[in-house]
Amino acid sequence: MEDLLDISALIQLRVDGQFHELDVLPSRTLLDVLRDDLGKKGTHLGCKTGHCGACTVMIDGKVAKSCITMAATLSRAEITTIEGLADDDGSMHPIQQAFWDEAGLQCGYCAPGIVLSSLELIQDNHNPSTKDMEVALAGNLCRCTGYQSIKRSVTEACVRMYPEKK
């Protein structure tokens, strides 16, 4: 596919705190770049149509579906994946800990997206209602839990992250 190289785009991404300068073809998604070029396998492919949310990441602090985000459109962007939440020593972010303790996942394939969508919600709204959660997580499918333990996990995460609000 060498003939396409001349129309590739140069992009600058800071992914989970690390800077990358990449030459990307117009057909490549952010998910392709994260998984194949940067080895960020924690972000998952579920449907390639933007419906399931397994590929959810944060772009400049806002959640987005990386499977339908074309990498070449991100000339400079700050990306947070699920791998960017834990500390360097491996200790979990409180929201991850809450999901772990409350069984907010089973197979775990959707979990990275669900955790990031939940985090975006509770960073803005420290005491979300069930309705707020349903809106924030409308773009994330989970096939295992029936969502019950996810709601419980989000509530628990708020208690841990913002104890003064409860």
Binding site: K40, K41, G42, T43, H44, L45, T81, I82, E83, L85, A86, G90, M92, Q96, F99, W100, D101, A103, L105, Q106, C107, G108, Y109, A111, P112, V115
Partner: peptide, 21 residues
């Protein structure tokens, strides 16, 4: 007892190894 699942840690930090990984 409702013991926390040992296997749930890895997916939560994005380090589980699914086949496609």
């Amino acid at each position: 007892k409702s013991v926390r699942a040992k296997e749930a840690r890895a997916p939560l930090i994005g380090k589980a190894k699914y086949t496609n990984d």
